[in-house]
Structures are given as structure tokens and as C-alpha cells.
Design a protein around this nucleic acid. Sequence first.
DNA 1: ATATTTTTTTAGTTTTGTCTAAATTATTAT
DNA 2: ATAATAATTTAGACAAAACTAAAAAAATAT
Lengths: 218, 218
Amino acid sequence: MTYSEENYLKAIYHLSLSQKQGVSTNAIAALIESKASSVTDMIKKLAEKELIIYQKYQGVMLTDKGLMAAKMIVRKHRLWEVFLVEKLDFAWDEVHDVAEELEHIKSEKLINKLDAFLGFPTEDPHGDPIPDKNGNIVKVEKQLLSEFEIGQTGICVGVKDSSSSFLQYLDKQQIALGSKIKVVAKESFDMSLTIEVNGKSMIISNKIAGNLFVKTVS
Amino acid sequence: MTYSEENYLKAIYHLSLSQKQGVSTNAIAALIESKASSVTDMIKKLAEKELIIYQKYQGVMLTDKGLMAAKMIVRKHRLWEVFLVEKLDFAWDEVHDVAEELEHIKSEKLINKLDAFLGFPTEDPHGDPIPDKNGNIVKVEKQLLSEFEIGQTGICVGVKDSSSSFLQYLDKQQIALGSKIKVVAKESFDMSLTIEVNGKSMIISNKIAGNLFVKTVS
DNA sequence: ATATTTTTTTAGTTTTGTCTAAATTATTAT
DNA sequence: ATAATAATTTAGACAAAACTAAAAAAATAT
């Protein structure tokens, strides 16, 4: 599989997680930052290889084969991210672009050895799950902080948006994976939240709360 | 720089180490396993970018800029090899192909962090020198075992040929970097050597001896 | 010194992945 | 139900990197 084919497959995988129907040409083009016509070309190729099912004008869906291939790329991406953060001291907002390259290195032995070296992690530095060598994914119950009621307490287990600016904002506010967050108040006008983290009280916008995954605790 | 440009640059670098004049088109084609016409195309491109000096029919030489770029690729290749052997328990004959891919990952930060993580090694698993971040290379005096006289003792510090079959032969004979080797006798008919390694005596062909680098010791 | 051989370059194709512009199909609005 | 709009596909072009075959230059041999 080529570098480019892998990127398309990964994009289709990510898009298919949020929609249960076929993934549209335009959606792929937007994510990959290319043009719809380029996408049409590529999905024909992927369909020929039986990695996706494609009918003209109907969008695409991953086959079992394609799903597994996509998961293996995601596995590589996320394992490399763990390596960069845990072993090479990268910050969590610096790893994406490098992992984007590393994910294309073709060696099963390499990735399985790396997995062992890292202690078989189940989540990457942003809280996203890492498929194991068979493609199995451990699902963590989580919800968005914005869905919490007043008085509820949770632990931060992931981010929905992992853009540099968002991650750096969290660093600045000292919110990290594992942080305990309590919702103290909710402003009905703009849905901003007053929360307590590390004993400190702060106000965060609804947009922030809508990008933070939390797990309920007692 | 593209993947392909980097490979050409690296090939030219390796070839220019053994010859002091310009590197010929055919020599590059042979090393890269491509055709002379393809090489001509690429060296024109590299010359435009001022990475090499090229005059028709005269072969090529690296510019300072090209030399540094080539050294950085070699640096990456060899650091990754150290990582694979030291951290992921690869055998020394398994690392080349994977490193061949990893050397193209574009991140200065990554490679310098990796360098630090590995403890700033100066040699790769085959005894070849690793350029530092400024391109400096520590030279080790070494000679081929085949050049040793009877009675001389040395320590194995590298291999000239790092093909899988040769490295596996050395593993089988329990010859590794650091092994102490004493030349006991030399057969004048075929130049084969009787040597002592790890207290054991064995006979090795001239071809083997001509691919083992050793450093003289007392 | 000239003829032969080898090396290198040029010219023209091919493949992969991209694009623009135009045509076609699907969706939405009236 | 038809018109307007949006989404998708097709057709044709282009750049990168490779190739084959043929031409040109350099090296070698007689």
C-alpha cells in the first residue's frame, strides 16, 4: 500500500466513526485537504483492491480488510505518539505531525516490538484508544464535559479536538489526562462552566467543555 | 527534499568516501539499482539545488551543503539502527531495511531527542560512525583483519560488508563488536587465517577476514 | 590515428497522484 | 413537478520519478 492510499484509508476510517452511513467524497476531500476529483480517483483504486465498497454517488464504506488496514495505521500512529511523549519527552501538542510520518513505516515486527517496549499502552497521549495487534480496541465510557450536570465530578480522559492551540490551552490551565474536574456552575446565557480543577476554580467556555472528554467518578 | 533525492544524495556520499574524484553516473545507478538515464535526470535536479556539482560526462561531487545533508541522512539511519538494536532488541542483521525507511522522517527535533535518549552514541551496531548534529564524525583507527600479521591481536570494531548473511555468520561464530581476536596462523595458499576468539580456535577465509575491521591492541 | 567499446546523455513513454474545468447525478426549494 | 443548487464524476493536463531505445561523447585498443 502506498503512503497516499494509507492516508485515504485512515481518513475514511475516522469519518466512518462519526457517521454510520457511507462516507462522502467531499468529506474525505475536506479532511485530506484535496479536491473531490482526486478523491474519486483514489477511491476507485481502493475499491479495486477491495479495501472499500464504492458505488457511484453513494459514498464509501470500509470492508473488513480495509477496516483492519485502517486500524493498523491508527495503531502505528498512536503507538509512535506514546513513544514520542513517554520516551523522547515531546509535549502532547507536538507529536501529531511526526507521528503522521512514522505511521507509514512498514514493519510489523517494528510496531509489535515498539508496542512491547512501551508496555502495551491502550491509549495515546490524547486519550484516544490504541488498537492491539488484532485490531481490538478497548472502549472507555466517556462523555463530553459540556454534558455534565452541576455538581458532577469527572476525570479527564481525553480530548475531542487535539489541535495544538487547544492542547496548549489545557497545559496553561494545568488540565491534563487524569485531572479531576468538578462542575460548580453553568451559565445559561452562553453555557460556560465554572469548574474546579486541582483545587482551583476557573471558568471555561462551552467550546472548551465540548472538546474535553471526562469519565464520571463518585 | 524528497525521499528519492535523499536516497541519491546518500548514495553519492557513500561512493565519494571510497573515491576521491567525481562519482560516476553508472556507479550511482548500480548502487541505487536503477538505470543510468534515471540517474542523469536526478543529478541534474540535485545540481540545480546546489547539493552537488555536476558537469556533463564528468561525474558529480557533493557541495558543502550536499555533504551536510547527506551526513544528516546517514546520522538518522545509524541512530535508528542503534535504537532498534538497543531498545527494541532487533538483531544487527535485521535493522538495515527498517532504518532505510526511518532515515527519511523529517524532524530535527525528533532526531536530536532520539540521539539524547540513546546517550549520544558514536557508532551504529555495525561499528560505523554516527555523525553528530553538526556533521562531525569520530574517526576510529581500524584496519581489516586480513591485513594483520601472525601473532597480532585486535578487537573487532566493525564490519565492511553488513549483509545479513555475513552478520549471521559472525553471530554463529560468536564474533561480535568488542570480541578479542588473535591471528595464530596464515595459510599462504588461500590466505585463510587461523584465529583465536573467546579462547576458541577457528579458521576463517580471506574473504571473511577482508570484511572484518579490527583495532590493534597490546 | 582510427576503430571499437563503454559510458553518458537525450528523447520520448509510463505510472502515480494531483489538479481544473466541464458534465452528470442527486438534493432541495418553490 | 420542475427549477435551482449542491455533490460527484469524467475528461484532459501536469509534475515527479522511473523506464527503453537511440544518439553522443569519452575511453580503450589496435
